[in-house]
Design a protein around this nucleic acid. Sequence first.
DNA 1: AAGTCGTGGGT
DNA 2: TACCCAAGACT
Length: 370
Amino acid sequence: MAPHDQTRKAVHRDSDDIASRLLGWYDKHHRDLPWRVPPRELARGARPDPYRVWLSEVMLQQTTVEAVKSYFRAFLEKWPTVDALAAAQTEDVMKAWAGLGYYSRARNLKACADIVARRGDGFPDTETGLRELPGIGAYTAAAIAAIAFDRPASVVDGNVERVVSRLFSIATPLTEAKGEIRVHVERMVPAARPGDFAQAMMDLGATICTPRRPRCMLCPLREDCSATVSGDPERFPVRLPKGEKPSRRGAAFVAVRSDGAILLRKRVEKGLLGGMTEVPTTSWTARTDGATTDAAAPFPGNWRLAGSITHVFTHFALELDVFHAHVGGDTPAGHFWSTPAEISGEALPTVMKKVIEAAIPGATKKQRPH
DNA sequence: AAGTCGTGGGT
DNA sequence: TACCCAAGACT
């Protein structure tokens, strides 16, 4: 290994070495992903489709690669271009997004597509231009600029924070260390292949420099890594202890018509599960004694307790008692019926599929022609 | 600027 | 089991 000294020039060369080692590793060990153009094809002159880069990056916000794959393929099948997505109905986009979580992303995705389609010149090709679009924050703007447009942007996501905090044994809690981490990344970003560098950092974090039990023996940067040399890489990044998760309770009502249709309604656009579809429920702090239950049901009827479900959101846990009744065809104001053939295509978040399944097992599964 | 916003897989 | 946390954005 080359001798180190304290000059600025040496520091720069050291950073270049890190990028070179990382890119060499990426050339051999990169993941093959549906939205990715591999380095071999980039070397032949292929360019990524900014629409696909954008779509994948928004889907990947706080979401695992495995969860995204099938949604990415389905979206690309339905809406192959940003113009196609702009021409879609927001309601259909919400339906296609159902199950992926963080539903404001879907609304912002559609709003962003509308703006880009109206621009008529594709996506902005700079970090600044991208940052102005709905649903595109600091990370996503940098990622699209680097991956789709070959800009030397500093891409900092949770993987990069972990890798860098270990490389330099950053003991400051993560919330306060972001600026320091960004400075390190800015020094490392290479002039050539900045998009591959960003994806390489994320692949390294996802496959080698994992939160627990990192595979340091396989890491191309182990000689550069302060935390590995000191013997306890899992100590980084340092996070502040988190508060306790409160729990809420409520009751949900699955009303079934004679043809098997289920009564649904649409939630308000903003806030939790905004714009998504649900069965009628009490408020989610309500007590579930008999009096409250009868008052909140969409129909007076022969309600039977079918069971209860629990669902854990990011900042609270929810327990819902699920009531089930067969009812007549009246339609309460603001509600609608969804037949067994239609229900799997509704914009039902996972918590609501759990509720319906508790009352009618199999009801939300996709029907297969026979 | 700390809280809000989903879900599923790994350990 | 209970906890961690993932290619974060928005307010």
